[in-house]
């Protein structure tokens, strides 16, 4: 079961000091994943954000012990992000013999983009970039993308107003979109 080993690795190598909250998040995620999988055929996948959001809601109640709310949100985002990105990388490598595939240069112009693993990985790369220049905006994106939180929930976590979250989110989206466009043009284009 290679993937589960990966999960263990993430947990152990997690740079977050609060191992306990991450640990309980893992347990909760797995518990929920398992319940969702009962009776499902092999090869079935789960929508990750639903999973993560549920886990988050659950743990939220017990969170008095964790003083640092932001820290927990960061842990949750990071956990989910690691799992998802690793999974996408692995799948994509498997499909294309170790090589990452080129993206269609016009992909962003299409309505309802099919999110290939390659695009997912690229988006993640963009987020890593954004993090260096604007960590707070990145936090919002991560919470939305990988934990599926609502604006209100994020506002609560970060201690800002909902409107602020909306604004960060808008800015981050514009930034990320532009970054993707540039990136695809240079590295995947003509």
């Amino acid at each position: 079961m290679p993937l589960s080993l990966d999960i263990e690795k993430h947990r152990d190598s997690s740079s977050l000091s609060d191992g306990d909250s991450v640990g309980s998040l893992y347990r909760e995620l797995k518990r929920i994943a398992e319940q969702r999988m009962i009776g499902q055929p092999d090869g079935q996948t789960l929508q990750a954000t639903i999973l993560a959001h549920e886990a988050w809601l659950k743990l939220n109640h017990a969170r008095k012990e964790w003083n640092d709310r932001q820290h927990f949100l960061a842990a949750a985002s990071k956990t989910m992000r690691n799992m998802l990105i690793d999974n996408a990388r692995k799948r994509s490598r498997k499909r294309h013999g170790g090589e990452l595939q080129r993206l269609d240069p016009f992909i962003l112009d299409k309505i309802k983009v099919p999110f290939s693993d390659e695009l997912t990985l690229l988006i993640d790369e963009g987020l890593t970039q954004l993090e260096t220049t604007n960590p707070v905006h990145t936090q919002v994106v991560l919470a939305k993308f990988y934990v599926g939180l609502t604006n209100l929930e994020i506002a609560d976590e970060l201690g800002v107003t909902e409107r602020t979250v909306e604004r960060y989110w808008a800015s981050a989206k514009v930034w990320l979109y532009r970054w993707l466009r540039a990136e695809i043009k240079t590295n995947h284009g003509f």
Partner: peptide, 30 residues
């Protein structure tokens, strides 16, 4: 650009999926 970005990202997280193995590993851990 925000309009385009909205179009792009509105469904992004719906597309993130986790495979079954994760679920299987739960049982092991439990």
């Amino acid at each position: 650009d925000l309009e385009k970005a909205d179009e792009l990202f509105s469904v992004y997280s719906d597309n993130l999926e986790l495979p079954r193995e994760i679920a299987d590993s739960v049982v092991c851990e439990l």
